[in-house]
């Protein structure tokens, strides 16, 4: 009985979110992340609620995204310091072999009708995701270690988009997004992204 109730609730939930969208994004890292990784191409899939009245309204959405990054250098020079009787500065390096991000997001946008088929849609999302990183770091006379793992983050991203209704059920859209971490110190996910996509009502 419990299972049936859950299934019904999920069906109602997904019925409410009856627009599915596929978006390709061009990601431009900023801040500390911008030093390490190059701009990359990523993708998102998300669901949006469908409203009969398309003039002006709040529309929630949720989805998932994935970005695979390449680093700007094969080897990054880093510094180690040994302090005993005297100070010695040692030249080390870090080499990354993997740098990916995957995330869930959910948010809301406010649709503003500009023209018959054209809408402006500013919005805000909350992201919950993780970075998956592998690297080898060596600091001569100090340490030589490898790392493979991930860290979770919670982010926020304001966005602005333009939707063009080709038909009532097919929409092409573009978005610009600024992504930031909600926890100030862990800022290694900051990036802007610019995407285009296709949305279909089902």
């Amino acid at each position: 009985m419990k299972k049936i109730v859950v299934i019904i609730l999920l069906l109602n939930f997904f019925t409410a979110f009856s627009q599915v969208a596929l978006k390709v994004i061009y990601v431009r890292p900023t801040g500390p992340m911008g030093m390490v990784v190059k701009p990359a191409i990523g993708g998102e899939v998300f669901f949006k609620a469908f409203e009969e009245d398309q003039d002006e309204n709040f529309i929630p959405r949720f989805g998932i995204g994935f970005i695979k990054f390449a680093t700007r250098l094969d080897t990054f020079p880093v510094t180690g310091v040994i302090t005993s009787n005297t100070t010695t500065v040692t030249p080390g390096y870090i080499t990354y072999s993997k740098f990916n991000m995957a995330y869930f997001f959910g948010g809301v946008e406010y649709r503003i009708k500009l023209h018959k088929k054209l809408y402006l849609s500013p919005g805000i999302d909350i992201n919950v995701g993780s970075k998956s990183i592998s690297y080898q770091a060596k600091y001569p006379l100090i340490s030589d270690q490898g790392y493979s793992g991930g860290s979770a983050y919670i982010g926020i991203r304001p966005r602005i988009g333009l939707d063009f209704f080709i038909t009532e059920d097919i929409v092409v859209f573009s978005e610009a997004t600024r992504n930031m971490n909600l926890v100030v110190k862990e800022a290694f996910i900051a990036h802007n992204d610019y995407g285009i996509g296709l949305r279909i009502n089902f």
Binding site: P122, I156, P158, R178, A190
Partner: peptide
């Protein structure tokens, strides 16, 4: 509600944009 959303969105977007530390070329 609409106005509050626009204010929150606008302030957030402004803050985020100003805090953006562009990657060096």
């Amino acid at each position: 509600m609409k106005k509050q959303f626009i204010y929150i969105f606008g302030l957030t977007a402004l803050f985020m944009t100003l805090s953006c530390h562009k990657a060096k070329k």
